[in-house]
Design a protein around this nucleic acid. Structure first.
Lengths: 151, 151
DNA sequence: GCCAAAGTTCAGAAATTTCTGAAGTCTCCG
DNA sequence: CGGAGACTTCAGAAATTTCTGAACTTTGGC
């Protein structure tokens, strides 16, 4: 349980997050939020920790704020403090919703641009059916999560 | 419903797929599979259609085969024929499973590398809980899809 | 108000990903 | 077998993404 091990684990997590679609710096920053043993953290601390420029960390923080994974705290002292939001993981997953919607939209555009009865039309119909189903299920799934969590 | 419109819609879909994590060429290739008005298609046709080299199409096909989105058909004539798999969308979604597993694994590694009672340990515990929940729900969700589809 | 610390932005450098073209391999037909 | 067409692979070019460093802006204390 050495320091070294801990930050190795953090970097490994960052890698997984990157594959999951986050930008590299945002992923590494998020990992710092997870693994740092204080309640809140400042930008300078993150930059020092990652050995990165404050510029890139600023960008990463902005991205994470936009997605809603972290929040800026009512600033106590001089510098801004940030922390991971409680429901960060649910939020990250919810982001999938917009991807699903985009897929559904794309399928419908395709259906409209395709002659009925042809193979393309049928395939796009299948696609629409699946994403319509998914779009219906995801909210219920998150609701089940919140329910379970409340206990 | 002109040809032009149709392929515009295809390229737009490719863009969405790219944002969803597919490589650019694989995404464009998949779009061709969706929008082409024949049951099967050959590599040369795809390359010509996309105005891309057969080399890149070969790579894209390989990737799509690996993920399981398309299949090589028992070759009728000389060239290989491919087609989109019936359950392509479910397969694409199932791929999320491995991402979820990787996240869960990363969380558990982090928990092991972190001192119990500290904020980091707690945060990683939350993360593990969420992804454990998700990993439990996804199979059931897909099962519901297959059930609904059977009707 | 003025200063200093903290944060933001952005142009260009660096790193990474992606694509092509050409050489190599495989397969099937004659 | 030999040849031709189809496919694969891979080194290097092209395009894109990502990061840095420095100039600029904002904020809060004095």
């Amino acid at each position: 349980m050495s320091e070294q091990e801990r930050w190795q684990a953090a970097e490994r997590l960052a890698l997984v997050l990157t594959e999951g679609g986050l930008q590299r710096m945002a992923a590494r920053t998020l990992a710092v939020f997870l693994f740092t043993n204080t309640e809140t953290i400042t930008m300078g601390e993150i930059a020092e920790h990652l050995g990165a420029s404050v510029g890139s960390v600023s960008g990463a923080i902005k991205a994470l704020l936009t997605v809603g994974l972290i929040e800026r705290l009512p600033t106590p002292g001089r510098r801004e403090h940030y922390r991971l939001r409680d429901d960060a993981w649910a939020i990250l997953f919810t982001g999938q919703n917009t991807v699903v919607q985009a897929m559904l939209q794309a399928a419908e555009t395709g259906i409209a641009a395709t002659t009925p009865g042809g193979p393309a039309h049928r395939r796009l119909g299948d696609m629409r059916d699946f994403y319509t189903f998914l779009l219906g299920e995801l909210p219920a799934l998150l609701q089940r999560w919140h329910q379970q969590r409340a206990t």
